[in-house]
Amino acid sequence: MLKIHKLTKNFGGLTAVNDVSVTVDEGSITAIIGPNGAGKTTFFNLISGAIQPSSGSVMLNGVEMAGLRADQIAKLGVARTFQTTNLFEQATVLDNLIVGHRLRTRSGFWDVVFNTRRLQQEEKICREKAELALDFVGLSHRADALAADITQEEKKRVAFALALTTDPKILLLDEPAGGVNPEETIGLANLIRKLVQSGKTVCLVEHKMDMIMSLADKILVLHHGQKLAEGTPAEIRQNDAVIEAYLGVEHAEN
Rank of each mutant, 00 (worst) to 15 (best):
A189N: 12
I170T: 04
L173P: 01
I170G: 00
T166V: 08
V158L: 12
N181S: 09
G179M: 06
A148S: 14
A189E: 11
T151I: 10
E184Q: 15
A177P: 03
D149F: 13
E183C: 10
T185I: 13
E175C: 08
E184R: 07
I170A: 05
P182M: 07
I192P: 02
K194Q: 14
R193M: 11
P176W: 00
R157K: 14
K156I: 01
A159G: 09
L162P: 02
V180E: 07
G179P: 10
L171E: 01
N181C: 10
D149I: 04
L188W: 05
G178H: 09
K156Y: 03
Q152M: 15
G187Q: 14
F160E: 01
V158E: 03
R157M: 10
R157D: 02
L195M: 15
T166E: 05
Q152W: 10
R193Q: 12
E184M: 09
T165K: 00
A148N: 14
A177G: 12
A189T: 11
A189M: 14
I192Q: 02
P168I: 02
L172I: 07
E153K: 10
V180G: 04
F160K: 03
Q197S: 15
A189L: 08
L195W: 01
I150M: 05
G179L: 07
A189G: 13
A189V: 11
L173I: 07
V180P: 05
N181W: 11
L191F: 07
V158W: 00
I150G: 03
G187Y: 07
V180W: 04
D167S: 11
L188M: 13
T151P: 06
V196R: 08
G178V: 07
A163K: 01
V180N: 05
P168A: 09
L164W: 00
T151M: 12
E153A: 15
T165N: 03
G187V: 08
A161C: 09
E153F: 10
R193A: 09
T151S: 15
L172K: 00
L162Q: 10
L191A: 09
F160P: 00
P182I: 10
